[in-house]
Simulated assay, not measured.
Amino acid sequence: MADGVPGADSPMRPVVRETYGPADLSAEPIFGGGFINFGYWKAVDPARPPGEPERIRSQRDLYRHVLDAAALRGPDRVLEVGCGLGRGCALALEEYGPAAVTGLDVHPQQLRRARELHTDLLRRAPDRLRFVQGAAERIPSEDEAYDAVVSVEAAQHFPDLTAFAEEAARILRPGGRTAVASFFTVDDAPTRPGQLADLLETYANGLDLARPVAALADAFSAAGLTEVRVEPIGAQVWPGWDRWLSRWWAAGTWPRNFLRAYEDGILDYYTVTAVRAR
């Protein structure tokens, strides 16, 4: 629905353009598997250093956690906001069997990579998978077009959570569900942005934006969504992620300070869900 619908030309912040374009974060070995997420490590043995298979499983399991939270059903039409390389879209199709999945991303280079990566799947299921360009705050879609809107580790980049929530409410059908997984500050204390900038390069350079999880939950409620729930899952994310990073990074260095920010009670990882009333 990108053709003729506002949203595909929405501007990107320069740091986002560089990180997911020329810098190609997906090529970094710490993101082996191509999902570009920190992972959900609940099924990984905490007594053993994780290897590449465990790392890839953690990334796939984070998607499964979110797709389960969205309660996908066979007839559903699903939108993933911030789809990156589209691996989560493919996992949703292959394991959950919805009617169709659309991957939305603001970055044209990521979309090109996604289409190249999933050439066979796009050819085999042209009516069930597609990738479109657009921003979370201005989604190129008609009203009430989707049964589920999901987003995995992208909301920390969204400049305007209120606009995203309003768009999610607009494009969801009555009874539709949204599930978002990302990392947020634990509260709105004014010291949080500075603390995170001191600890983590991605907050210092503006790639990640320091907002409390309540900002998204409240935005969903203000947009008219109901049954808004916030689930902290940091215990399943940060320790496993840190063990994986220890293969390359010394303790106390970036990006192992994500665990420190969690242990210091500054930052956590959350799943936020909501429903559009019937």
Rank of each mutant, 00 (worst) to 15 (best):
I30P: 00
K42M: 09
A2T: 04
N205V: 11
A222E: 06
N37G: 01
A99N: 11
S246K: 02
F38D: 00
A155F: 14
P11L: 04
Y203L: 04
Q59A: 15
L207E: 09
D218E: 13
L85R: 14
A90M: 13
S141N: 08
R115I: 08
P49C: 03
W248M: 02
S151W: 11
C83R: 08
G134F: 12
T202C: 11
L196T: 07
F31W: 07
G39P: 03
T271F: 04
G88W: 12
G240V: 00
A70D: 11
E142C: 10
L111V: 10
D120K: 15
D120T: 14
V106R: 10
A43W: 03
D160Y: 11
F220R: 00
R130W: 07
T102M: 03
T191M: 01
A223Y: 05
Q59R: 07
P232L: 13
T253E: 14
Y270T: 00
V106A: 14
A2N: 01
Y146R: 02
G74R: 13
A217N: 02
G86H: 06
W254M: 00
D24A: 14
Y269R: 01
R256P: 03
A210R: 02
G265K: 03
R243N: 02
E80A: 05
G175A: 07
G84W: 08
R55P: 04
D147L: 10
W41R: 04
K42A: 14
H157W: 08
R278E: 05
R128M: 11
A27Q: 06
A179D: 05
C83H: 12
L62H: 12
A71D: 15
V5I: 12
S58N: 11
A114T: 04
F158W: 15
L111E: 11
M12W: 02
R138Y: 10
S58D: 11
P98G: 12
R177I: 06
H157L: 13
A277S: 06
H107A: 09
R130P: 02
G4E: 01
A215L: 04
G84F: 09
T178R: 07
P193C: 05
G84V: 06
L200R: 07
V106K: 09
F38Y: 11
L67E: 13
L93Y: 08
D242F: 05
A43F: 06
H65Y: 14
A47R: 09
T226R: 11
P239S: 03
G103L: 06
G39D: 05
V16G: 00
P29F: 07
V150A: 06
S246G: 05
P140C: 12
P6T: 06
V5R: 09
R173A: 10
L85I: 12
H65F: 15
Q156I: 14
G206W: 03
R87D: 15
V132K: 02
D208S: 15
Q110I: 04
P50M: 04
G134L: 13
A145R: 13
V149Q: 06
A189K: 08
A148Y: 02
R276E: 01
A92Q: 14
N37D: 00
L93K: 01
D76F: 14
L196A: 06
P174K: 08
W238P: 00
E52T: 15
L161H: 14
Q195S: 10
A168G: 08
S182W: 08
P190V: 12
Y262P: 00
V132P: 04
V152N: 13
